[in-house]
């Protein structure tokens, strides 16, 4: 048993899930890694964790649906004109809040813009925020967390305290303060803010995962055989530590997209001319504008929820695939 406590933290849901995973992996170690009753079949060839996971994922309908949905979202984020022919910024105030008509399937918003076109163009902001923020958080978090876990000692103490400092700032509150300072908020401002306050979550998980991986017999054996730090890190520790990071990151991705919308609601999110679901939803909610025209809330909200859903489903499927205990 480790003398250092595992990365149990006040990190909200995702951390707690990780807590649970950590607990179960220890339980696994304790009962001698006996396969569960539904364990792998006898005649399977030896596959790595990743090959195993991929094998599972391809057969998981939830994963397939989510992946297709995400593929579609990425496509229209890159080329919105594929399915929307109008210009999202040309609006006629005279048609403010008009309901759906032929050619304008989703009706018009307060400014008289075509809601369908705005929903299609809004995908780019949400997907970019989600994907880039997650990539940044995962990169910074796993780098710092990994360093802390691998080297331990002073490094660990130092990095862990810095992690705690950023962890101590509630993200919504930090967003309100941080983003009201920045005058011109683009997608990249929001992304860098999320990275700034989001990385500790991953760092804690990465640190815990690396510490666990370091304790494994084969790593100890490699060390005893005189393997270099780099080799141990690359060959043994990283492949094992990366799974929990990926799982947490994919689930976090969905929450970041929702966070962007909430920040817009609080008045510190993205701003025009960036077309974003968050801005559209908060416009519709503010002053209960949606009473006059439900379509201005329903369509962007549905698009947002569907996107978040797709990423969370993906994260779920990946976690199930990477956690052998659940197989």
């Amino acid at each position: 048993m480790t003398s250092e406590p595992p990365a149990v933290g006040a990190g909200g849901a995702m951390d707690a899930m990780n807590v649970m995973n950590a607990a179960s992996s220890e339980a696994r170690a304790a009962d001698g890694a006996s396969p569960g009753p539904e364990g792998p079949g006898p005649a399977r060839e030896v596959r790595s964790l990743w090959q195993d996971a991929w094998h599972d994922l391809r057969r998981n309908p939830i994963f397939v649906i989510a992946a297709l949905l995400i593929l579609f979202l990425v496509l229209i984020s890159l080329w919105p004109s594929l399915i929307a022919t109008r210009n999202p910024l040309s609006c006629q105030l005279g048609r403010s809040l008009e309901p759906a008509t032929a050619g304008h399937w989703f009706g018009f918003d307060t400014q008289g813009c075509d809601v369908y076109t705005k929903v299609v163009y809004g995908a780019r902001a949400s997907v970019t925020v989600g994907v880039c923020a997650t990539a940044g958080v995962a990169l910074v978090g796993s780098l710092l967390g990994g360093l802390a876990g691998f080297f331990g000692g002073v490094w660990d103490a130092l990095i862990s305290r810095v992690t705690d400092i950023f962890f101590g700032i509630p993200i919504m509150l930090g967003g309100l303060v941080f983003l009201s300072v920045t005058g011109n908020r683009s997608i990249w401002t929001v992304v860098s803010f999320i990275v700034l306050l989001g990385w500790p979550q991953i760092a804690r998980i990465a640190r815990g995962a690396v510490i666990t991986a370091k304790q494994n017999d084969y790593v100890l054996a490699a060390r005893a055989l005189g393997a270099s730090n780099t080799r141990m890190l690359v060959r043994h520790i990283l492949p094992n530590a990366v799974a929990p990071v990926i799982v947490t990151a994919t689930i976090a991705l969905g929450t970041y997209i929702a966070l962007e919308a909430t920040l817009s609601f609080l008045g510190v999110g993205l701003q025009p001319p960036t077309v974003s679901w968050g801005v559209d939803i908060s416009d519709a909610s503010q002053g209960m504008q949606f009473r006059n025209a439900p379509h201005i809330l329903v369509y962007p909200a549905a698009a947002l929820s569907l996107t978040v859903l797709a990423f969370i489903m993906l994260g779920d499927a990946v976690r199930d695939a990477l956690d052998p205990k659940l197989r």
């Binding site: 919308a261 909430t262 939803i281 908060s282 909610s285 809330l297 909200a301 947002l304 929820s305 978040v308």
Partner: peptide, 18 residues
């Protein structure tokens, strides 16, 4: 639960309030 997680709180809140 997936649906609940994917709808932002301010939407549920305002809609519920209304």
């Amino acid at each position: 639960t997936l649906v609940v997680i994917s709808v932002p709180t301010f939407v549920t809140g305002t809609l519920g309030q209304y």
